[in-house]
């Protein structure tokens, strides 16, 4: 039984000016082949202008059970949104 190729996460920049976005994963023996495989698996219809690959084991993710404590602090800071402030109409667009 041969050992399994490592898993890579694939990120694609769809168009110039956009961020890379996670599209999925694939197996490949090394980074170079991961890029080539990603080209064939995720951009068969011109979906990308740039590809990043990163080994799945190298990703550190926030834990789903921390979702509450991790994101709660921003809930109470409604003043971060511009709609919190009433600007009189006479002032015009701001």
């Amino acid at each position: 039984m041969s050992s399994e190729w490592p898993l890579w996460e694939v990120f694609i920049r769809g168009q110039h000016g956009l961020n890379h976005r996670h599209v999925g994963s694939l197996h490949a023996p090394d980074a170079e082949l991961a890029i080539k495989n990603a080209r064939d698996v995720y951009t068969r219809r011109n979906e990308g202008v740039s590809i990043w690959v990163v080994k799945s084991v190298d990703i550190t993710a926030s834990s789903p059970s921390d979702k509450g404590p991790l994101f709660e602090p921003s809930n109470s800071k409604v003043y971060r949104h511009p709609t919190f402030f009433q600007i009189p109409e006479e002032v015009g667009h701001m």
């Binding site: 041969s2 050992s3 190729w5 023996p29 090394d30 082949l33």
Partner: peptide, 9 residues
């Protein structure tokens, strides 16, 4: 082939 590519990597 799979083994060979992994060994190379």
């Amino acid at each position: 082939f799979r083994d060979g590519l992994l060994a190379h990597a």
